[in-house]
C-alpha cells in the first residue's frame, strides 16, 4: 500500500487490507500518532498495551484494534501526506499543512509537473509535492546534508513515493540546481537561509511562466529575496503569511436566569469533562491541547449536572487559547515570459 493512490485496474481486495510491509499510521488521538511498517511477528507497544502486527494483517484500513492486555485500542489508518506530517520523525524544522497546502496550490502543481525543492529537510513538504505531481511528474529534492538526504530517501521508499521523487545531496545556495533540468521546470520551492543566492539558478531552471516559492521565517530574508527576484524580471511577486486557527467544540451551559439566587456559578460548566482513560478509551481530541475542551462523546453527560442538562446545553466553539503565531513568509513569483 503506497501513500499514492493506485489506478482502479491495479486495485484488488488485497490493496484495501493491511499487508506485510505496509505503512500504517497508528492513531491514538489527534496529537498522538505513529507511522509503523507492518512486519511479520512485529510488535507495537504503547500505553494501551502490546499490539502484535500479525493480528493487523488482513484487516481493513481504518479498523480499530485492541491491545493484547486489553488496556485500550488504537485505529490503523492508511497513510496520507497529512498524517505523515503529523507522525514523521523530525530531523529538522518542518512545514505544516497550512503552508504546505498553500505552496502546492500557488505553484499550480498538477500531475505531470516537474518541481524542484531545496532543502529536503524531514521530507514533510516533499510527500505533498509528490502526491500533486504523480503519476507522471517528478519531484527533484536537494539537501546539502548527506545523512538527512539518505534518511529522507528511506522514508520515500517506505511510503511508496520514490517513483516520483529523486533525492540528491547538493548545496543549492552554492552550486545552484543541476543544469540538465534547465528550462523545463514548472515550479521551484526554496527553504534556504539565503534564498536570494539561488535565484539566478531558479531563473535558468524555470520554464517561462513557471513559478517559484521561497519560504523564510524572517522579513529581512524576504526583503532581499524580493529585490533579487525583481532584478531578475520576475512578475507577480507576492508575499503571504498563512496560519491556521483550530477550534475547540463543547457543550456549555449558559444560564438564562438573571435573578438573585443562592446558586453560585457552577464550575462544571467550564471544567473539562472527566477523562475516561481508565477504560483505555481514546478521547477524540479536536486540537493540539489535551486539556480544557469537551469532546466527551457523550456530550458531557458524565458531569455532575447529569443527562437532563445535556439536552439544554448548546454546542459552542472557540479557538484554542494558544496557537502558532508565525511559521514563515511565503514569497511567490512568476518567471517572465519572453517577448
Amino acid at each position: 500500500m503506497s501513500m499514492l493512490a493506485v489506478p482502479t485496474e491495479q486495485r484488488s481486495e488485497k490493496s484495501r487490507v493491511i499487508c506485510e510491509g505496509d505503512v500504517v499510521v497508528v492513531y491514538e488521538r489527534h496529537d498522538r500518532m505513529k507511522a509503523v511498517t507492518v512486519a511479520k511477528n512485529g510488535e507495537l507497544q504503547n500505553r494501551f498495551g502490546v499490539f502484535p502486527h500479525n493480528e493487523w494483517m488482513g484487516k481493513e484500513f481504518g479498523c480499530q484494534v485492541k491491545g493484547r492486555n486489553g488496556a485500550g485500542f488504537v485505529y490503523l489508518l492508511a497513510p496520507t501526506p497529512e498524517l505523515w506530517t503529523l507522525a514523521l520523525p523530525h530531523r529538522t524544522q518542518i512545514l505544516y499543512i497550512a503552508d504546505i497546502s498553500f505552496v502546492v496550490s500557488f505553484l499550480e502543481l498538477r500531475p505531470g509537473s516537474v518541481v524542484l525543492e531545496s532543502g529536503t529537510g524531514s521530507g514533510s513538504l516533499t510527500h505533498s509535492l509528490a502526491r500533486a505531481v504523480a503519476p507522471t511528474g517528478h519531484v527533484h529534492t536537494f539537501d546539502f546534508h548527506e545523512q538527512r538526504a539518505n534518511a529522507a530517501r528511506e522514508d520515500f521508499a517506505r511510503n511508496g513515493v520514490s517513483g516520483v521523487v529523486t533525492v540528491k545531496v547538493r548545496d543549492i545556495q552554492g552550486e545552484g540546481f543541476p543544469e540538465e533540468l534547465a528550462g523545463c521546470v514548472d515550479g521551484v520551492f526554496l527553504d534556504l537561509p539565503q534564498p536570494w543566492l539561488a535565484i539566478p539558478s531558479v531563473v535558468r531552471s524555470l520554464r517561462p511562466d513557471g513559478l517559484v516559492c521561497s519560504f523564510s521565517p524572517c522579513i529581512e530574508q524576504v526583503q532581499r529575496t524580493c529585490e533579487v527576484l525583481s532584478k531578475h524580471q520576475f512578475a507577480d511577486i507576492r508575499t503571504f503569511e498563512v496560519l491556521l486557527r483550530s477550534y475547540e467544540v463543547r457543550h456549555e451551559n449558559l444560564s438564562t436566569s438573571f435573578e438573585c439566587s443562592e446558586q453560585t456559578f457552577s464550575k462544571e460548566a467550564t471544567k473539562s469533562p472527566p477523562h475516561k482513560r481508565q477504560r483505555g478509551e481514546v478521547d477524540e481530541k479536536g486540537g493540539p491541547e489535551s486539556e480544557g475542551h469537551a469532546e466527551d462523546p457523550n456530550g458531557g453527560s458524565k458531569t455532575a449536572a447529569g443527562s437532563i442538562v445535556k439536552q439544554s446545553r448548546p454546542v459552542i466553539a472557540r479557538p484554542y487559547p494558544e496557537t502558532k503565531g508565525h511559521t514563515g513568509y511565503l514569497t511567490f513569483a512568476r518567471q517572465a515570459t519572453c517577448m
Binding site: 492513531y27 489527534h30 485505529y75 489508518l77 498524517l83 497550512a98 524576504v222 507576492r238 508575499t239 503571504f240 503569511e241 498563512v242 496560519l243 491556521l244 486557527r245 483550530s246 477550534y247 467544540v249 477524540e284 479536536g286 486540537g287 466553539a317 479557538p319 513568509y329
Partner: peptide
C-alpha cells in the same frame, strides 16, 4: 477520528 475544526488566516504583504 482526527476531527479538526479549523479556520485559515491569510495576510499579504
Amino acid at each position: 477520528v482526527a476531527l479538526q475544526l479549523q479556520e485559515p488566516w491569510l495576510r499579504e504583504y
